[in-house]
């Protein structure tokens, strides 16, 4: 058997039958895909959602391959997981970490309605599929005989050539649209330093530079709030992003705790040295 024929054989196998291997693969990966989808929906942070979605998409790519759609499987990985999801991550980065929203619902009854609708829709969809009496099962052996990519190409450039050209136009339009949407023309001249200062005075905002964070040079200390004269920490001293992430460290308590721990440690060491000396 030449390598090509073996490929054809596996192709036909994949197309005609569902082997036990495929069944195992389906149940295992399918479960993972569902979990990934659920995580996409329920993860609190957008980055996590994006990662879960990427995982689900890779599993879907595997399923495409298992279904004899080799080209699509590869495209799925390259285009979706590789390009689109990265685009998502870029945007998440642009929009910022603060965009992590709470899962608390604000519209009254929205969640319950959504779940109810989702449940009903799913049940109906499943019922519809079960009802469809899909017993005929041709397999892709015939269609993929000349190679999956070649077959797709033949269809794409003959039967679907107009649609193909239109999608090209669509992509061009989309990219131009995206540029138009995100590009911002400066319609007025930039404000000078002086004007900005005057604006701050007008608006009655914080005039002098913000106070520096507390400097306890024990680690990367920008997340430690500076202490006010009465000993309470001032949130103003900490970077806004850290503040919104809730990553301010309460120095006052920590310092005391540290001191206490230090005293304990020193006391313990003194004890040890004393007892050592005593034993000597």
């Amino acid at each position: 058997m030449t390598p090509t024929t073996s490929v054809e054989a596996t192709t036909q196998l994949a197309a005609y039958t569902t082997s036990t291997g495929e069944a195992v693969q389906f149940w295992v990966l399918g479960t993972v895909a569902v979990i990934g989808a659920l995580c996409t929906v329920f993860m609190k942070k957008a980055v996590h959602s994006a990662l879960c979605l990427a995982g689900t998409m890779i599993i879907l790519a595997v399923f495409y391959l298992a279904n004899g759609a080799y080209f699509l499987g590869v495209v799925q990985i390259v285009v979706y997981t590789g390009a689109i999801m990265m685009l998502f991550l870029f945007v998440v980065m642009l929009v910022g970490v603060t965009a992590a929203d709470s899962l608390k619902e604000t519209i009254k009854g929205q969640r319950w309605l959504a779940l109810l609708c989702g449940l009903g829709f799913g049940i109906l969809l499943v019922a519809g599929i079960g009802n469809a009496s899909l017993t005929e099962f041709s397999g892709l052996g015939q269609a993929n005989a000349g190679g999956n990519v070649e077959g797709l190409a033949q269809l794409l450039f003959t039967k679907y050539v107009f649609a193909f050209e239109l999608t090209g136009a669509l992509l061009i339009t989309a990219s131009v649209g995206a540029m138009v949407l995100t590009h911002r023309e400066r319609t007025e001249r930039a404000k000078t330093q002086r004007e900005l200062a005057e604006q701050r005075v007008r608006e009655g905002k914080h005039l002098p530079p913000l106070p520096a964070p507390g400097v306890y040079a024990r680690h990367n200390a920008v997340d430690i709030a500076g202490l006010l004269p009465d000993g309470t920490p001032s949130e103003l001293t900490v970077n806004r992003t850290l503040r919104e992430r809730g990553q301010i460290r309460d120095v006052s308590a920590e310092a005391l705790n540290d001191l206490k721990a230090l005293e304990q440690r020193s006391a313990a060491r003194l004890e040890r040295t004393r007892s050592g000396e005593a034993s000597k």
């Binding site: 080209f71 495209v75 285009v79 685009l87 005929e136 041709s138 052996g141 679907y160 669509l170 339009t173």
Partner: peptide, 30 residues
């Protein structure tokens, strides 16, 4: 596509991907 034994389904899935890509580009820009 597998059930029917032809590649039309895959072609449509392909188009869906293209459209989805375009949609994502515009949507993310928005």
């Amino acid at each position: 596509s597998r059930m029917h034994g032809n590649l039309d389904g895959q072609i449509i899935a392909f188009f869906v991907m293209v459209v989805a890509a375009a949609e994502v580009v515009v949507g993310l820009a928005i």
